[in-house]
Design a protein around this nucleic acid. Structure first.
Lengths: 179, 179
DNA sequence: TAGTATCGATACTAAAAGTATCATAACTCG
DNA sequence: CGAGTTATGATACTTTTAGTATCGATACTA
């Protein structure tokens, strides 16, 4: 498996950081690949060599940002609370909600992107939560719809993350629903 | 108030219908104003005379589509259920979810559009629901976040409206929360 | 019939996604 | 050290689309 030729520069992290920063500053629509590349200090062609479309880039960035779900606590109620608060914290990070909403918009009209989003971003959490909560796929997908949908809607309407009081209410409502 | 000059043609309804049809067929991103205008049988310039941007057009289209909330039933639980099911039915109509998600995306990076969205689309429902449910602004905004956010997330991830079983679960969860 | 405002058509500018090309840089293997 | 290989940055390009400008034609009012 000896590699020949010039090795790929390790710029993924820089590109992802530049993506979130740019999306945060100018929004999804005006976050051009040109600008993201410049912010990351690489050429636009380098970006397109790694991710075929802007939507794929943003999705990969989101997958990278969210990362594995750290389920803390011992019982189901703890797991539900920690999952919700983890999602809220991530969606509250600069650029994440805007990137999420943008890729969502593209996904509705683009089955390929929708599949990437569903498979690469949602499925790992779905599978882990089915295990941890002992719930059916249908129930876990419902859980994810409510949590992520609610948090994104709040960000989209107000431009700000959900305040703690409302986040607490969300946690309690869902805990009661899954009791 | 006597009008002089050629009166405006009454094409709003045709443009809105063409907007939803086009967005449904090709998605928000590829629903060009040119194409919408052609579908409606008017010139692009006529569209831009009425709505300054694509985002404003889509928002106006959504306001027109959603219309006044018909609250049926007698008690709070009925009102909650009817409001949720009304929202679900509207978001399930062809093109509505895609239009909503698209304008949302633009709104996150555009305070002006966000204000239009919040004021023209959300506020009428918020005010009516505060009255009908006897709840605070904060609680009603939370209610709207959960309902619309959940329904849109499902549409975005799957491309299909929420099935009845999940919609029932949503109604019950929120009814319990607001009891 | 004169005045006025909208209409459709056309042409245009500016921005941005994505592609193509190529000289150069960085690595491996012999 | 040199040949082979692959990635990089820079540049140029095509295509699409949002939004603007212009203008003759049209539909109304007074």
């Amino acid at each position: 498996m000896a590699q020949t030729g010039r090795p790929r520069a390790s710029v993924d992290a820089a590109v992802f950081a530049a993506t979130l920063k740019t999306v945060h500053e100018v929004g999804y629509t005006h976050a051009t690949v040109d600008r993201i590349a410049a912010e990351a200090g690489v050429a636009k062609t380098t970006v397109y060599r790694r991710w075929p479309t802007k939507g794929a880039l943003i999705t990969a960035c989101l997958v990278d940002t969210f990362g594995p779900l750290p389920l803390t606590g011992t019982d189901r109620a703890d797991h539900i609370a920690s999952a919700i608060r983890y999602g809220a914290a991530k969606i509250g990070e600069p650029g994440v909600a805007a990137a999420f909403a943008g890729v969502f918009t593209d996904a509705i009209g683009d089955p390929v992107l929708r599949d990437i989003l569903s498979t690469q971003l949602q499925d790992p959490y779905r599978i882990l939560l089915q295990e941890a909560l002992g719930e059916s796929e249908q129930r876990v997908l419902f859980f994810i719809d409510v949590v992520i949908g609610t948090l994104l809607h709040r960000m989209g309407m107000t431009g700000r993350p959900m305040v703690d009081a409302d986040l607490d209410a969300l946690v309690e409502m869902i805990q009661r629903d899954f009791k």
